[in-house]
Design a protein around this nucleic acid. Structure first.
Lengths: 377, 377
DNA sequence: ATGAAAGCGCTAACAA
DNA sequence: TTGTTAGCGCTTTCAT
């Protein structure tokens, strides 16, 4: 516990030693707009290496390696001297070199739509937690629902030689991953299936969940039910629509095309579609929301109206139970999705080589009030 | 657009080639409980290298490198042949080797309390976005408010030679970072200041925000106001308490010790403290919540009570405006905190070497209803 | 326009 | 117990 203070000049000098602009150094995500690398100027060239430690401790390089990695076969006295040198020099093993040599990075990549989305944030956290128990770090990126960005990110992660990938796909064609998977990158898709390739996947049972949610509304007397969902290119959106259609068909109810609206989750779009369904001669008396973003917008829309409209949302969300009326939802468990996906990934990394799996997780209907409102015609 | 299909055996063979258990391979986060590495078995040894591409294209290694990196000085014909070989072999540059050679990783680390917390998720996303514009990847980890885990994570990131670090500290002593910073790892603290070292930081003005929030309650007639905040070891918690005390003092109001409760954000703890403040002969008529987790719990507690109690929460949260009463908050902008921190980081990476900065961001009081309730004595 | 050689910092294999 | 050598896959330097 030495309250040692580095002279303030040190850090400044180190900073000054850096090359002029960051981007000149190295690109990760390919960007055709940016010209290729030029200036060499090293970055951690000033850092002590094992060789330096060895020289200072008066031992061989391998001995330092042994001490650093806690391997056996070093006498206590030698170890002490090496430790002293390490501390004095502020040595820290360069894992880049280690990774190159060992061929494994002890890191996995996670690509999803939006890290900040309340649905994906817990998923991401769960993946991180599993990675941690396996001694791996997590590199993650948001695709923003853009297939090109997904591909760019995924390939950047592959170039970094992540040991595995967990992907919430934005793209519907993952053939670009074939060489990577063949080269041994374990890959698990979560929340949505891969496109045009075989791979492990962990999904919620969107179809059944939506069918139950819509059947719940029907059971409460609704006949005209609107479906407002995510963009049709997204697998879960179409699955949930299928669930809606199945529930309606099972009840012998017709579906008017104007009751269906798939599109982006931007509040404006959702508002426009909701407004049109709720107006006219035969307005819908209930709405089914295709995901949490849509649900939240619909809660706002309905709060602004006088006439009560029933609502069931896909995905649970915080405080749903404290709204008035409390919001009935078809709940998924995003953390569990993430955990399952990550565990499947590490099973692959541990050598499991059976056929790709499709894990389906059930959803749970939580009746809170908004879905039990009777139709007001 | 060749709909090429890899024979299913390929991936399986690659998987089988892997070593037996993942953890044997390589450790990232030091774990004394796990024994040191042993089995060597390579991982991407089966991957083609530039050398392989060169052999196949009948050119020199450096020519391949030129093509891969888009450098000038390659004849169109040669380039074509190299490209063909790259495609045929499924070559992808190994960035681990590149990083080792170039000395820069084009990645930054982010360590925060909990990736899934609705306050930190947008912060994280903002950091990611800035990193992206600078061509860097983001490696992140959650410290779970554990100083040891923070240190472990940060040092693992340093060993990976991330170019920079953004840290929401859990620890109150960051001297362990001195050698790293001296070696050139740009470091920016966000949301909370560093402990015992000088470094850049980006903070919200917790003191002023809390003072305004409490003054708002006082202006609405409250005299007995409870403060329920985060654990006192957390800087923002004590700053907000200071703000509370300042507002009370400025109004000439006494503060009874039983009105103050700092501790974990677990709902049980918050409930117990709230219950005791709200009972007795002279219960508080208003509550000030120290952060969004506490606020959410208090909303639940108050919803269960008959007598209305005023509430102002620190941090805004989704749907706060749709609760009844809508919740008055002192809002921070977590995305902006993240963006500022990341931009500051990249300025450092671009060579800025002026003295460490302390950036303070203002908070904003948003009156929605719960903070405007009159005291009911 | 192209390539051969050196070496980034580490670990593996093998001596001593 | 300890050290020496080779080489991971790439970029850099300097030839040609």
């Amino acid at each position: 516990m030495t309250p040692r203070t580095t002279p303030p000049g040190d850090a400044r000098r180190a900073r000054r030693a850096r090359r002029r602009t960051y981007e000149q150094g190295l690109e990760t995500v390919a960007d055709p707009a940016r010209p290729a690398t030029r200036s060499p100027e090293r970055r951690y060239g000033t850092r002590p290496t094992m060789k330096d430690v060895a020289a200072r401790a008066g031992v061989g390089l391998k001995t330092v390696s042994r001490v650093v990695n806690g391997e056996a076969g070093v006498s206590p006295d030698t170890e002490r001297r090496v430790q002293e040198a390490i501390t004095a020099l502020g040595f820290r093993r360069n894992d880049s070199a280690r990774i190159l040599r060992k061929g494994r990075t002890a890191s996995i990549g996670l690509v999803l739509e939006d890290l900040a989305d309340p649905f994906y944030a817990p998923l991401s956290r769960a993946v991180e937690e599993v990675a941690r128990t396996h001694g791996a770090l997590l590199i993650n990126g948001s695709s923003a629902e853009d297939p090109d960005r997904e591909r760019e990110l995924v390939l950047a992660l592959c170039a970094r030689r992540v040991d595995g990938l967990v992907i919430v796909p934005a793209s519907d064609d993952h053939r670009y991953l074939e060489p990577e998977i063949a080269a041994g990158v374990a890959t698990v898709f979560v929340d949505r299936p891969p496109g045009l390739i075989e791979a492990d996947m962990v999904l919620s049972d969107s179809f059944t969940g939506a069918r139950e949610g819509v059947a719940h509304l029907i059971a409460h007397g609704h006949r005209r039910i609107g479906f407002i969902g995510d963009h049709p290119k997204i697998h879960t959106a179409t699955e949930r629509l299928r669930g809606y259609e199945a529930a309606m068909a099972e009840a012998g109810l017709p579906v008017h095309p104007s009751w269906l609206a798939l599109g982006g989750t931007e509040p404006e779009r959702v508002r426009v579609d909701a407004a049109s369904m709720l107006s006219g001669a035969e307005p819908v008396t209930a709405l089914f929301a295709g995901n949490n973003r849509v649900t939240v917008t619909l809660v706002r829309v309905l709060a602004e109206r006088e006439r009560p409209v029933a609502l069931v949302g896909f995905d649970d969300f915080e405080l749903a139970d404290l709204l008035s009326p409390p919001v009935t939802v078809v709940a998924q468990d995003p953390a569990r999705l993430g955990r399952s996906a990550a565990e499947l990934l590490f099973r692959r990394l541990d050598g499991a080589d059976d056929a790709p799996r499709r894990v389906a997780q059930p959803t749970r209907l939580i009746a809170r009030g908004s879905g039990e409102l009777a139709p007001r015609d």
